[in-house]
Design a protein around this nucleic acid. Sequence first.
DNA 1: GTTTTTGCAAACCATTTGCAGGGTC
DNA 2: GACCCTGCAAATGGTTTGCAAAAAC
Lengths: 144, 144
Amino acid sequence: MPAVVGPSPIVAALENAGYRLTAPRRALADLIAARAGSTFTAADLVAEVRSRGLGIGRATVFRAIDLLERVGAVERLDRPTGEHAYVACAPAHHHHVICAHCERSIEVGDLGLGAVAREVTRRTGYRIDGHRLELFGLCPACQQ
Amino acid sequence: MPAVVGPSPIVAALENAGYRLTAPRRALADLIAARAGSTFTAADLVAEVRSRGLGIGRATVFRAIDLLERVGAVERLDRPTGEHAYVACAPAHHHHVICAHCERSIEVGDLGLGAVAREVTRRTGYRIDGHRLELFGLCPACQQ
DNA sequence: GTTTTTGCAAACCATTTGCAGGGTC
DNA sequence: GACCCTGCAAATGGTTTGCAAAAAC
């Protein structure tokens, strides 16, 4: 396993967008990077910040998530329960597959959804500008 | 236009599931039925209940929405802003196309998404148990 | 008559905001 | 040094809950 070779993509995204690299933002980027592939809620981060004794306030956590969402470093998911969760992910267009058991998530590409959207336009006349697809199930490990 | 010929499908759904048909529930079912095809939030219903002077409490509105969601008479949508909205809809499997301008929504069938889910399983090993697809755009009328 | 449902008010939880002090560029 | 960012605490907005009275079955 290589040593750290540069700033995490999350930090890089902030940098590129011209935001200041502060200690709280770096720390939060690390926490999020450590959860790579797993979904998390704002409350999860707040709890981890507390339990680790980092002195980061609730408001800062929410502001950071908001920022990271705007620069495309994380994306919001809506769990079937209605909770808001987040995942770190690439800024390219994709969808998430979320394991109902371990909350882990992976990204999948478009997989022909563009064609689905065009079909909808053809049938309904709606102009489709965007879509959100979330797939729920069990990851290979959680199927035992 | 025919006169009312029977209980609304919403009321029928409650009846079938064995819940009591109370005045508040009938009134809310009417309000929701009147919005057929449009999305609404809990706050919308609370406001309408107030402005019409129906004496229905906030809690009852939330409890009714919850109930109707459980019996499959309404479905929750997650607007891109993160707000929770609802639509009255048939209990069959389908997806919603939501107009960003007038908030009106229509249902569309599966349109090949089942194949997409199978493809995901083939590529990732995830067992897909459910999915949520929301399409956002402009309805024919709002395109001018 | 028993059980469910309601309205009210208070509690609760998540998220946002105002502001003075501190850190970054 | 100017401006951005932070922590705190308070405000906010949405949703849930406890409970006694009222309605449905």
